[in-house]
Simulated assay, not measured.
Amino acid sequence: MALRLSAEAMGTFLLVFGSIGAALFAADYGVGSEGTSLGIGFVGVALAFGLTVVAGAYAWGPISGGHFNPAVTLGLAAAGRFPWRETVAYIVAQLVGGAIGTTLLVLIGLFGPDGWLRSAQDGGFASNGFGEHSPGGFGLGAAIVAEILFTAIFVLVILGVTHPSRGTKFAGLVIGLTLTLIHLASIPIDNTSVNPARSIATALYGGPDALLQLWVFIVFPIVGALVAGFCHRALFDGRELG
């Protein structure tokens, strides 16, 4: 169990450190001498989330299952693919890994250009948000619906590609590409959570508004994951196609 928890913490650390680092350091890097953008933008950040999941899945997935996300852990438990008794330990490991990730980003910021860290924190530190804290100005209702639906889609894909008899050896790649797609569609809505560990990790340094809105990005990804897990178990598991 200690080895599996270490793998979960490392995978979640990689996801948060790499993807939030991309959002903070590279998303809006300014323009070159000819007016060309030097930042990676939404597309680059979406790819960063997907690539970190792919890397973590193949590096540590064989040890722990590669959840790296409390919603995924609970969705797998709801689908009967993971023991409920182990969910708390996995979630704690994921939260620790994510918090370490953003803490090390803060450490880098301390040695950055004057005012960079304060500016990043004043800007919410890539935290999730709605209303005035939504990149596209979307409200609470949009954030709730998006988090439920996109997390449900994510968990359904995970359950499909990791099925014991119908899964694929390319599961890690499919899961990473799915997370990229989800971010491409939903970053403008609420900065995309679908992962409470990611949301908590950034809210720790995102200021009081990020902490006040954090409940949305804990509750509704979990709701979406549980719905997906129970539905997949009822519809697909235990049924052989043919």
Results as ranks from 00 to 15, higher is better:
residue 146 A to G: 07
residue 231 C to S: 07
residue 143 A to D: 10
residue 54 V to W: 05
residue 12 T to L: 03
residue 240 E to A: 15
residue 139 G to C: 06
residue 171 A to I: 09
residue 170 F to N: 15
residue 34 E to M: 15
residue 178 T to E: 02
residue 126 A to L: 05
residue 51 L to T: 07
residue 37 S to F: 15
residue 45 V to F: 05
residue 40 I to Q: 08
residue 212 L to E: 14
residue 191 N to H: 14
residue 77 A to C: 07
residue 217 F to T: 02
residue 16 V to P: 12
residue 234 A to D: 06
residue 161 V to D: 07
residue 101 G to A: 01
residue 83 P to T: 10
residue 213 Q to F: 01
residue 18 G to T: 07
residue 186 S to Y: 14
residue 53 V to I: 14
residue 120 A to W: 14
residue 136 G to P: 06
residue 242 G to H: 12
residue 42 F to Q: 01
residue 184 L to T: 08
residue 143 A to M: 01
residue 61 G to T: 07
residue 225 A to E: 03
residue 197 A to Q: 04
residue 110 L to D: 14
residue 69 N to S: 15
residue 62 P to C: 04
residue 238 G to C: 12
residue 23 A to G: 12
residue 149 L to H: 09
residue 18 G to W: 01
residue 10 M to Y: 00
residue 188 P to R: 01
residue 28 D to W: 03
residue 88 V to T: 08
residue 108 I to F: 14
residue 34 E to Y: 15
residue 217 F to L: 02
residue 211 L to V: 11
residue 200 I to P: 01
residue 107 L to Q: 07
residue 12 T to A: 00
residue 165 S to Q: 13
residue 112 G to Q: 03
residue 218 I to P: 03
residue 193 S to P: 09
residue 22 A to V: 15
residue 16 V to W: 01
residue 66 G to R: 03
residue 88 V to C: 04
residue 142 A to T: 02
residue 84 W to H: 10
residue 108 I to V: 15
residue 116 W to N: 08
residue 113 P to H: 03
residue 174 V to T: 06
residue 210 A to P: 08
residue 183 H to N: 06
residue 34 E to C: 05
residue 45 V to E: 04
residue 137 G to C: 12
residue 105 L to D: 07
residue 222 I to A: 13
residue 103 T to I: 06
residue 190 D to L: 05
residue 145 V to P: 09
residue 138 F to T: 05
residue 25 F to P: 08
residue 135 P to Y: 09
residue 87 T to H: 05
residue 103 T to L: 10
residue 64 S to Y: 00
residue 62 P to M: 13
residue 203 A to F: 08
residue 194 V to G: 00
residue 22 A to S: 10
residue 82 F to Q: 02
residue 132 E to G: 12
residue 127 S to K: 10
residue 131 G to F: 12
residue 208 P to N: 04
residue 86 E to K: 11
residue 104 L to C: 01
residue 105 L to Q: 09
residue 27 A to I: 13
residue 164 P to R: 04
residue 124 G to V: 13
residue 68 F to G: 00
residue 73 T to E: 03
residue 185 A to S: 06
residue 138 F to S: 04
residue 228 A to K: 02
residue 50 G to L: 06
residue 57 A to S: 14
residue 54 V to Y: 04
residue 195 N to K: 08
residue 77 A to V: 03
residue 219 V to Y: 04
residue 13 F to D: 02
residue 231 C to V: 13
residue 16 V to R: 01
residue 29 Y to C: 09
residue 120 A to Q: 12
residue 199 S to T: 09
residue 134 S to T: 05
residue 29 Y to V: 09
residue 146 A to F: 12
residue 68 F to R: 01
residue 11 G to M: 01
residue 9 A to F: 02
residue 218 I to N: 11
residue 24 L to K: 04
residue 171 A to S: 15
residue 210 A to Y: 10
residue 94 Q to P: 01
residue 69 N to D: 14
residue 14 L to E: 03
residue 79 A to N: 11
residue 237 D to K: 10
residue 197 A to Y: 10
residue 105 L to S: 09
residue 176 G to N: 03
residue 17 F to I: 13
residue 204 L to H: 11
residue 191 N to G: 06
residue 166 R to S: 15
residue 217 F to D: 00
